[in-house]
Design a protein around this nucleic acid. Structure first.
Length: 493
RNA sequence: GGCGCGUUCGUCUAGAGGCCCAGGACACCGCCCUCUCAAGGCGGAGAUCGCGGGUUCGAAUCCCGCACGCGCUACCA
């Protein structure tokens, strides 16, 4: 029990979760599941100014979408909650008191103006050292006096001014920092809220976190955390700093990179299982060739040793490809079920509701052609439309004379009229014969029929398409084509 | 500026001294299949392993220096 793995995902609700955040969640989840441990979610809402309403719900929804179940955290709770830091302020205040009592922290009364001024001066002299520790050396009398004035104050950590702090990172190995280069950072803000540094250490300890797997941007603040652990006499967890995920411009992922929020991927029609598989490959690999893996395989084979050190650029094109792979793996009924909401969202209301039976006939035809579920409406609209919209001239295929069109359509109509229910194989045989009789190449004749029946010159195989449409619609469309061609054809002449 | 991390095809990556004049995948190109488009199959192009020094019989792999990139440097996380 004591050596149970406990990891956490600690998002701060300052915006919608992006791929980088979610990838971090995924690695924590995989690590927990691989080791049969616990995956905790803790919302780090300590910045009241940047807090975005609804953001923490969005993070949780994203985890839900990907089916990354957490064992403790919001919505599920657990023995070591609450799991929102804004509800744990007393815990941090207590920790800060303890640090001050032990001489590891002190109250600082410096105004924001003074700090601003200090920063400016340091910047000018190209000698940035951070806070100058003025309040660290206040005499008891001075301190009493300032406290009595009741002005705003913060609590700062008193960094050791000599020695080094060393970390043995799970991913990067040994990293050492010179203590005198680290400044006396703030633990408790003047509004009574803790900074990340105090909150994260306190909570990770209280929630018995054994491994901290977080983005590499946190590496520079790890010595601070290590110092707090030491001062509080807490045993620090193991740390692993995950490679960053960069945008195409190689900069840290942010809103300005366009679609970065997890929910946008859902709305575009990416499958959560494809998303999961793809994200796992950003900074981790199983071996030199395995790429498509289900979640069970991922859990089973995940290991920290195979995590990369270098940042990865998010490659949307490869995600799209992988989504196609996962779509093709779905059964017809599963795919139909997933596509339906997208059709309902994007098809004109007049074409709704979608006939289930009919949809089941259509789906096999687009399964190999659809990469994003959101493309479904565009790929299938002509199956639902009553009247097709195309230029009559599109009926005339390459190498054909316009006058050959009507007889060809009529021959096709006559042939179809003789048939019973349409079935693609006999249909193909029959229409090939018709093409030959008409003196047209299959390519021409079928191309012409494709336009007549779908209104497009690209579609799934013609005969399967006709079969799915059904005899009635096909005959109606061929007649419509004849009519349309004659009406406009004469005008063109 | 300081500190830290990183650097293998355009991109994701394999590679932990000889198996590598570097393997796989996406994208790209060609061919096959073919009623169009896909999917699939086959093939191609694409990386002087950031650069320069070492160590070694031998280095993408070890060591040193440099360059470049990124991150941090807030009463943000």
């Amino acid at each position: 029990m004591g050596d149970e793995v406990r990891v956490r995902f600690a998002p701060s609700p300052t915006g919608l979760p992006h791929i980088g955040n979610i990838r971090t969640a995924l690695f924590n989840w995989l690590f927990a599941r691989h080791h049969g441990g616990k995956f905790i979610v803790r919302v780090e809402d300590t910045d009241q100014e940047r807090l975005v309403p609804g953001a923490s719900e969005a993070v949780l929804d994203a985890l839900d979408w990907l089916d990354l179940q957490w064992d403790e955290g919001p919505r599920v709770e657990g023995p070591l909650g609450p799991y929102y830091q804004s509800q744990r302020l007393d815990v941090y205040r207590e920790a800060a008191e303890k640090l001050m009592a032990g001489g590891f922290a002190y109250r600082c009364f410096c105004s924001e103006e003074r700090l601003e001024q200090l920063r400016k001066e340091q910047l000018r002299s190209k000698n940035r050292q951070g806070y100058d520790r003025r309040c660290r050396s206040l005499s008891t009398a001075e301190r009493k006096n300032l406290e009595a004035q009741g002005g705003p104050s913060v609590v700062r950590f008193a960094m050791p001014v000599d020695g080094v702090t060393a970390l043995n990172d799970l991913i990067h190995g040994e990293v050492v920092w010179q203590n005198d280069l680290l400044d006396d950072f703030i633990l408790l803000k003047s509004d009574g809220f803790p900074t990340y540094h105090l909150a994260v250490v306190t909570d990770d300890h209280l929630m018995k976190v054994t491994h901290v797997l977080r983005a590499e941007e946190w590496l520079p603040s790890t010595p601070r955390h290590l110092q707090i652990y030491q001062a509080l006499q807490f045993e620090p967890p193991k740390f692993g700093h995950l490679p960053m995920i960069l945008g195409p411009d190689r900069a840290k992922l942010s809103k300005r990179h366009g679609a970065t929020a997890a929910e946008e991927y859902r709305d575009d029609g990416f499958l959560p299982e494809a998303m999961l598989n793809f994200m796992a490959l950003l900074g981790w690999s199983l071996d030199d060739k395995t790429e498509v893996m289900d979640r069970g395989t991922l859990v089973q084979s995940f290991s920290l040793e195979r995590i990369n050190k270098s940042a990865a650029i998010f490659d949307l094109e490869k995600l799209v490809w992988m989504n196609g792979v996962y779509i093709r793996q779905l059964s017809v009924s599963e795919l139909a079920e997933r596509i339906l909401p997208f059709l309902e969202r994007e098809l004109p209301p007049s074409l709704l509701p979608v006939d289930q039976e009919y949809l089941l006939r259509i789906v096999p035809l687009i399964r190999e052609r659809i990469k994003l579920l959101a493309d479904a409406a565009h790929l299938t609209s002509y199956f639902f439309e009553e009247e097709l919209d195309y230029e009559a001239g599109a009926l005339v295929q390459k190498g054909m004379e316009a006058r050959e069109v009507p007889p060809a359509l009529e021959a096709a109509r006559d042939e179809l009229g003789r048939a019973g229910e349409l079935q693609h194989e006999p249909l193909e045989q029959a229409l090939r014969a018709v093409a030959a009789d008409a003196g047209l190449k299959p390519r021409q004749f079928f191309g012409l029929l494709r336009v007549a029946v779908t209104g497009r010159d690209v579609s799934p195989p013609l005969f399967e398409t006709m079969e799915a449409l059904g005899k009635e619609r096909v005959l109606f469309r061929i007649d419509a084509a004849i009519g349309r061609f004659q009406a406009t054809g004469r005008a063109v002449e």
